[in-house]
Computed example of a mutant assay.
Amino acid sequence: MLIDYSLRMPKNIFAGENALEQLDSILAGSIKKVVIFTDKGVLNAGLTEIPKQILAHKGIEYTIISEIPAEPNYHQAQEIVNQFKEEKADFIIAVGGGSVMDVAKLASILATDDYTVKDLLDSPLLAKKQVATLMIPTTAGTGAEATPNSIVAIPEKELKVGIVNPEMIADYVILDGRLIKKLPKPIAAATGVDALCHAIECYTSTKANPFSNTFALEALDLIMNNIIEACTNPEALKAKNNMLLGSFYAGVAITSSGTTAVHALSYPLGGKYHIPHGVSNAILLTPVMRFNEPVIKEQLAVVYDRVVRGGNPQLAADEKSKAILAELERIVEVLEIPTSLKSFNVPEHDLEGLVEAGMQVTRLLVNNRREVTPEDARNIYLEVL
């Protein structure tokens, strides 16, 4: 039986020390006007200065849109798209984290008045690419620079959803460790564990395949062996570049495979309680992986052989699996990310609402190798309440 699988990636990727200078060659064409998507924190940190200088040097007109909220709802995303339309730009540069890049991706396919963000919630494939995009992540990361996904909240459902459209894949990506050098530890840790979740979930997904496994395994190696140093040592530029690359690879894996129950059950936590996406994933990572362990031991054993330096290849798959689960737990603990919902004042009487919302994320739950029933979801949430 022939099994089909596919891989989608940005067309041009530049990575490593001083990669940002490649912007000069990217802008060598007939670009007349650029809109830079960013947020106030990135702007105030000076991370848009090099792009602005290169644009000014080349005489290219540009406008900055910096009022992008963290984890926007679809109304807020539409407001930014409307603002972008008025600029009539022919190129987009997104400098920021996942929310910035996700809104920029939506703008790239909604530059006309044909469709709205709300339209894409029900029919994500309606819109086509109108404006070329360059993604420059300032976290490592959401992997948004690599994916065709845009995550928006639906306030009336107290849920986040992913709009998935291959037209949103970036035309260019720049990965430069200098841009995450001064990232505060809590943000670096949360986004780093988000990338870790992408990699481990894609590798253990029902949709895992040779394409996605190649990128997911390399991502796991880069992330698990660099995340602590990258988050705790501001001068560890090599570790930070490795994290950016690992985050990108994990994003590529998403395009060919898909995340699983960690992400599915985390969406209600962000949608209703506005818990940062990476933190909610970190809270659920170990409980979901322990739940999945009976059916993913062989995959986790392969991860052990790939990522554990000085490991014992003679260990049984069961022992290797448990070692990886312990390492995931250790990473979250060392990075001081919350492992409980108590600090976010999530009341236990909201449990049934969480279960109901989490079970609606069938797009991701179908990827989980072990079926998640409402009772299973209830027990997982109870574990972290």
Rank of each mutant, 00 (worst) to 15 (best):
I163L: 12
L325D: 06
T259R: 00
L300W: 04
A146L: 06
I68T: 15
L284D: 10
A45M: 14
L269S: 12
I31C: 07
V35T: 14
P210H: 12
V173Y: 02
E352R: 01
H263V: 01
V355A: 01
M243E: 06
F215G: 05
K52C: 14
V131S: 00
S247V: 11
T112A: 05
Y273N: 10
L55M: 07
A132G: 00
M135N: 06
S99T: 12
K297T: 14
Y115L: 04
G311R: 09
P155Q: 10
S340W: 01
M1G: 11
I283W: 05
Y172S: 05
V103Q: 12
L335W: 08
A94F: 01
G311W: 11
S66N: 15
K322N: 13
I187N: 03
P313C: 06
V103T: 15
G177C: 03
I331G: 09
I174W: 03
E61I: 08
A89F: 10
E79P: 01
G258I: 02
R378C: 08
K240Y: 04
M289E: 10
V34C: 03
K185L: 15
T214R: 11
V334R: 14
I92C: 04
S99W: 03
I223E: 01
E235S: 13
S256E: 07
I31F: 10
I109K: 00
E86D: 14
A264F: 00
K11S: 13
E158D: 14
I13R: 05
D176H: 02
F84M: 04
E87I: 13
S247G: 14
S280A: 14
N209H: 12
I36S: 07
